[in-house]
Design a protein around this nucleic acid. Structure first.
Lengths: 327, 327
DNA sequence: CTGAAAGCGCTTACAG
DNA sequence: CTGAAAGCGCTTACAG
């Protein structure tokens, strides 16, 4: 690969001057500049990032910690990468806790030692990861959480209450009166429950929280089978995720119920499968692209400030109700 | 961060000797070694990769090109990363062609210039990417395709014919006689069709290829609606992907058909949603972990050989029939 | 077996 | 405005 030295020789200028052109700063005589730019194009020069980081002691690497590699999170990451790449950074990914138990200690030790320009944490980061993230911040390594749920971290807040609020309002507007929320317990469902309860309260309708483990497909399906026979006379469900919604649909179909005529079902996430469900799922879409772009922007801003204290504000991005056929 | 120099000072040895301990090669006196190892632990030394690659002119980066970031491909990548990380390499990801049109030229220019230790290509790589990959190989940069479909490339071949063969055999064994294949045209479906046709021929049953664009959800659903009324009297379907299978299921349900009683449906991929379909989808599972591990192994092997010509052999990994309720 | 030294490509304070 | 030079941390051929 071409080096500054070769560039200098070819264009009969000093390394110093070539560097000026490469960095687009400092005055360089018009003719000299022209020669140098010609040489850059001719040799296809790209600066050696290893040398640059060795010299400047800064890195152009953004480390990305990926606790779960599902499509909605990868869409967020793809959007972030676009921005970050444009700003001259590269993404280095660490899958952690998939297939093998996570080794947070080793990972954070490595991150502290390799000093990336910044770190991006994808959802769903467990407590051990959250703690490690704080440690990075204290050590002056900027970081951003792609899904800020709780605690005092720089991150992007996905406005779940608002999306769920809209979804439940939509159910109410279409005449539903006994709307259940199906998902995990209070702690994990907090933000969705907030929107759910607000909509119901405004309409003077009762809240019905049916708990289930969202990953337990069989359990969710069974719940769906029994849903229509429950004493609460449920006529609609806001599910915790699309996956829960799909499990409920399966159970409802098992029991011979018609969706949405007897029971409406609304999901959350808008995965690609949502439109393939039967009936196609009405759901609250996560704004993956906006999340990625907002996270990238926050991280770049903190990096450009040269480390220091974390940004005070987190950004909140809205969710969006997507109406299909299930509710 | 600690440097070799500090380590040398702390352990009263020369840099050369410290380097020996770090690299675990060459003889070092027992006492010296002990002092040095103590110092390494105490300072939490991790070598500076920028300096190392600047000096050795080799990189410890594996570039990963990601044309589509869906969960099954990310599972493959996660498995590969585990192996590669263990061997001292880091993954640098490039999402290409998601959200913005792909810029293959710029990407490959960058890859040639930055000389990663190797490059991993995830499915589904379009022709422009394939061509660029060959170019890397010719320039001495090892690469592996995670899903080798066609052409002469080092890569992992997913044994689709065998999985589809098993699936169709399973359908035949359960009494199906008019088994259709639903998916895109000959070229794209070739490997699946091979397994499909072999099973049918062996049983003396007719092949029925119904074409559809796998991404066109509405079209697939319509096809599903009309499936049972077709002159071919179809009683089972092998779908191109789980997504096609789900679309067909939706259409079949629209038309009031019972699955699998009237028509059995088998998918391909075993996405996480497959078990959430109604009825839960019988499908052919891609061996994501094995694919990732095989790809990593091939890449490491080529890297260790120090570039040169590509490995002659591609590896083939088997697929696996997962029987649920839809067929 | 171990030490002193050169040099990878870059950036940048210092001269001229 | 532009040139010569030092040094980032590492590896490694060369001495001793």
């Amino acid at each position: 690969m071409a080096t500054l030295k070769e560039l200098a020789r070819l264009s009969k200028a000093s390394i110093r001057t070539v560097a000026r052109v490469v960095h687009r700063k400092g005055y360089v005589g018009a003719k000299t500049r022209e020669r140098i730019e010609g040489a850059i194009a001719e040799l296809g020069y790209e600066p050696d990032l290893a040398a640059r980081s060795l010299r400047t002691r800064r890195s152009f690497e953004i480390a990305v910690v990926v606790p779960t590699a599902d499509e909605i999170h990868m869409d967020k990451l793809a959007a972030a990468e676009r921005q970050l790449r444009g700003a001259g950074y590269r993404l280095r990914v660490f899958f952690e806790g998939q297939g093998t138990p996570p080794e947070w200690k080793a990972l954070f030790k490595h991150l502290h030692a390799s000093k990336p320009a910044g770190v991006l944490f994808l959802p769903a980061l467990p407590p051990a990861g959250l703690e490690g993230a704080s440690g990075l911040g204290k050590a002056g390594i900027p970081y951003v959480l792609m899904d800020l749920v709780t605690g005092n971290h720089p991150g992007v807040r996905i406005d779940r209450p608002q999306g769920v609020y809209e979804a439940v309002r939509h159910l109410i507007a279409s005449g539903r009166k006994r709307i259940a929320f199906v998902g995990p317990g209070e702690a994990q469902s907090r933000s969705r429950l907030a929107g759910y309860r607000r909509a119901l309260e405004e309409a003077g309708l009762p809240a019905i929280h049916l708990e289930c483990a969202p990953e337990a497909a069989e359990e969710v399906r069974r719940l769906g089978r029994e849903l229509a026979d429950r004493p609460e006379k449920i006529d609609a469900v806001q599910a915790y995720t699309d996956q829960v919604a799909m499990g409920l649909l399966a159970g409802l179909h098992d029991a011979g119920r018609t969706v949405p005529r007897e029971i409406a079902v609304v999901g959350f996430d808008d995965r690609r499968m949502a439109m393939l469900a039967w009936p196609p799922l009405t759901t609250v879409a996560q704004p993956n692209r906006e999340v990625g772009e907002a996270a990238a922007a926050m991280l770049l801003e903190w990096i450009d400030r040269g480390g220091g204290p974390p940004p005070v504000e987190s950004r909140t991005v809205p969710t969006r109700l997507v109406i299909r056929e299930s509710g």
